[in-house]
Amino acid sequence: MPKPTRPESVYFFGTCLIDLFYPEAGLAGMELLKRQGVKVVFPPKQTCCGQPARNNGYQDEARAVARLQLDAFPGDRPIVVPSGSCAGMMKTHYPEMFEGTPDHERAVAFSKRVYELTEFLVDVLGVRLEDKGRPVTVTWHPSCHSQREAGVVEQPKALLRMLSNVTLVENPREKECCGFGGAFAVRQAEISAAMVADKVASIEDTGATQVVSGDCGCLMNITGAAEKARKGFTGRHIAEFILERCHGR
């Protein structure tokens, strides 16, 4: 695939989870893009990609909320998303969700404009990072949907490897689901608990002091469980992590 051309401006889709719980991660994502000389526009009409309703079987509701996003991001600017899960939803499921409706054509066009944040930073902007932070050992947690739906695998690790004072240790079980799964964490609470306990243990085994991820759903689950069990690592969204390194904090 030819490398997409570098745009002058992009849209930012903040995601509903970041909006409520991790706004600093979203802000960091926008700052990172701005530092690359790209104008960032955050359309205030945006809400949620609609994934919660879709995954629970409420397709009309999912479409209604997704349609609002189609309205909120007009034109042809790229839409950058600091979540592999929401990006995956908009990239792969929007076209099929709107099939046979008058919105199909614009849903397809919309989906083609969607980029996961690290994907955009690496593949489109070709960023170079200068690490001003202290030495730290981290491990990467890829969300299931970023790896297997949005198709983002190498880009976040490439970014972490650009940081000279960051040692990235691989978690042999990194590809395995952390057990979040949205409503799954409540509907199948015990199975989810077992999964996140294993995920926390596998991160602990790497010896990293921080787990970095591109998805706040996973982070809420993993760091919530690590905190409750008083484990010795913390979690960070990759945008926030990188921005802090660039600022030397």
Binding site: F12, G14, I18, D19, L20, F21, Y22, P23, E24, G26, L27, M30, V40, V41, F42, P43, P44, A193, V196, A197, M220, N221, G224, A225, E227, K228, A229
Partner: peptide, 22 residues
């Protein structure tokens, strides 16, 4: 098995507006 998630005092919508991203 997890700590309670904390709602941020200001949403990204509010912060983005303040920082001029809107």
């Amino acid at each position: 098995v997890r700590t309670k998630p904390k709602f941020a005092p200001k949403s990204l919508h509010e912060l983005a507006r303040e920082k001029g991203f809107c």
